[in-house]
Design a protein around this nucleic acid. Structure first.
Lengths: 349, 349
DNA sequence: CTGAAAGCGCTAACAT
DNA sequence: ATGTTAGCGCTTTCAG
């Protein structure tokens, strides 16, 4: 444990005051060329780097932006996180990533830790910040935090001062369903997720309106809950088979995310059915999973670069007290692949 | 921007000294019940939380463990990270995740940031810390850092004081090849990755020895370089097809990781060949990808819970100046699935 | 342009 | 048991 050099030792060796060393480091004021040279030499000699804790304590700015994600094992989040990080990096900020591991208690802990360590801004993705009905305690917490630290989220926190950069779920559902309609589907299920989650709630709501607008009967059994993982999709699809024995079986299934689509496909395959000939499958998110499985998944995706960039830019602006719109929308895009359109047909389309 | 409460205000309102408040907060010394009660009341009233920057500055301990991963978009890393985080959490430490986005310059930056912010320990995964030939500059950097902060890695850094928790690559290759041999394969390719990377280098070395031990000809064209992604696997497999026209084509392919296996399978499918009947596929890592694609991938995996636990425990021990072995090995396990064993056969096995 | 000095918020001796 | 004081390492007035 070598003891670390500090600004005083540098100052002594360069025969200047600590203040001058600080000025050279930060460029906050003019320093004579001669002294600057001397200081820089010693700095290089020791490879001196200022203690960020002390720096943060005095300046009350850390240049850290905290990213709290519900689950970094989901490629959806890591994809956005990398895009955010890239942008933050370019803006001279550090991305500090926290994983809430899908647990509320940990989410709160992460949040408080970011407060304790004085992050300059916070980016919240998923978890409690994406509940359709905001938990009042959570809103309280967020509100207290936002008194001191600007918060931007991909979800919503009712009654709290947060900035939103959200996916346009409605247009995503529109694109997906129009595509399926155009392929002749009339019986479409929307599988997985929880109605208590904002993004899922919005998809389901839109799903119903689209059906209504088209004059197609809405069937309650075509919508079902599950976790956002492979097992969830699998469970749902099997339920769907069960609940539709002797009834109108959907010819197309929209999975709430790529993970659940994987489970859906497994369940379909186990019954010896073909995709897309017997049942077409489509999903939301368009992570690398959609391009990995066979047949490749038709999926609703988003411009992730843009998404991450906006999230980061908003956080940075807020950290610098710049005004930004409180609400920004990220458009959805449809990526058509073989899970809704047969391989041979794809070529002729 | 409400101004934050500090220990002095708490002290004043509770009519005690700041030191007493500190004692109540940290439990570092006895405080009379009466004063403790008064202090706690005020603390609750303001929901006071100590400034971690100031705390870290005085105690020189932050209870932060920095995790620097080469690429959090790879589920291999996120899987380990979550396991580490879980353990760190249980030990009262914070996992601070940094993503190097596969860039050396960023890896260095992340490292330095962790030093600047005085992490109590560092966990390094991938990137420069997994080069077969350690970059001397990098070793230098790591060495300087390890003077002050204990470092544990899943790779190696020659000539630097780092603690290692490594995967037993050799036994992984053994398991994989024995399995393939038992299925009758004699011509086996090892596809993707870079020989400059330690884990890949070790796999290739072992691959050659196993062939030799079995008296099977080693063919240079059965090994090839690529990035660790889907495109890399795809490229390699196509190259393999090309380079083997009119020659002995391998009947089994080992992909360097799950990502590249996806690319390998795509290339095989495009030629109208079947897996495993025409070509068997196997990969390393056994992330969720191996269970997602069809046929499910036979893969060499690791006890991730144990892996993460050991990594975290080592970091925590080191942070607390406890002795730990400098080198620990994580065993490999084989997960047999349909990409090497036909579905019907699986049932009878 | 430069140095002295105060202070960011906390903890850890050191007294009492 | 508790208060006083001196830092931790840095930046930032304020003088000069």
């Amino acid at each position: 444990m070598k003891d670390e050099v500090n600004i005083y030792q540098i100052a002594r060796e360069a025969d200047v005051s600590p203040a001058t060393v600080s000025r050279v480091m930060t460029g906050s004021a003019r320093v004579s060329d001669e002294k600057k040279r001397r200081v820089q030499e010693i700095i290089r000699k020791y490879d001196y780097r200022p203690n960020a804790l002390a720096q943060g304590l005095t300046t009350t700015r850390t240049r850290n932006v905290g990213i709290v994600a519900a689950d970094i094992e989901n490629p959806y989040y890591t994809r956005i996180i990398t895009r955010i990080s890239r942008e933050l990096e370019a803006e001279g900020y550090n991305a500090v990533i926290y994983d809430a591991m899908n647990r509320y208690d940990l989410e709160v802990k992460c949040l408080q830790r970011m407060v304790d360590t004085r992050a300059d801004a916070l980016i919240l993705m998923g978890g409690k910040s994406d509940e359709q009905q905001t938990d009042p305690d959570y809103a309280d917490l967020i509100n207290r935090i936002s008194d001191n630290i600007p918060i931007v989220t991909t979800g919503k926190v009712d009654g709290a001062r947060v900035y939103q950069v959200c996916i346009d779920e409605m247009s995503g559902v529109d694109l997906a369903m129009e595509h399926l309609f155009s392929r002749g589907h009339r019986h479409i299920a929307l599988i997985g997720g929880h109605g208590s989650v904002r993004s899922t709630f919005e998809k389901r709501t839109r799903y119903r309106s689209v059906l209504k607008a088209r004059g197609i009967t809405y069937r309650e059994r075509y919508i079902m809950d599950s976790d956002y993982d492979i097992a969830g999709g699998y469970k749902c699809m099997n339920e769907l088979f069960h609940s539709n024995i002797g009834r109108t079986m959907p010819t197309a299934v929209m999975a709430i995310n790529d993970f659940s689509a994987v489970g859906v496909e497994h369940a379909i395959r186990e019954r010896g059915l073909r995709i897309p000939e017997d049942i077409a499958v489509l999903s939301f998110d368009n992570t690398f999973i959609a391009e990995s499985i066979m047949p490749r998944l038709t999926a609703v995706g988003y411009a992730y670069d843009d998404f991450g960039q906006k999230l980061a830019a908003t956080a940075v602006a807020l950290a610098g007290d710049t005004e930004v719109p409180a609400y920004q929308l990220i458009p959805s895009k449809l990526f058509v692949r073989e899970s809704t359109v047969g391989e041979k047909e794809m070529l002729t389309l």
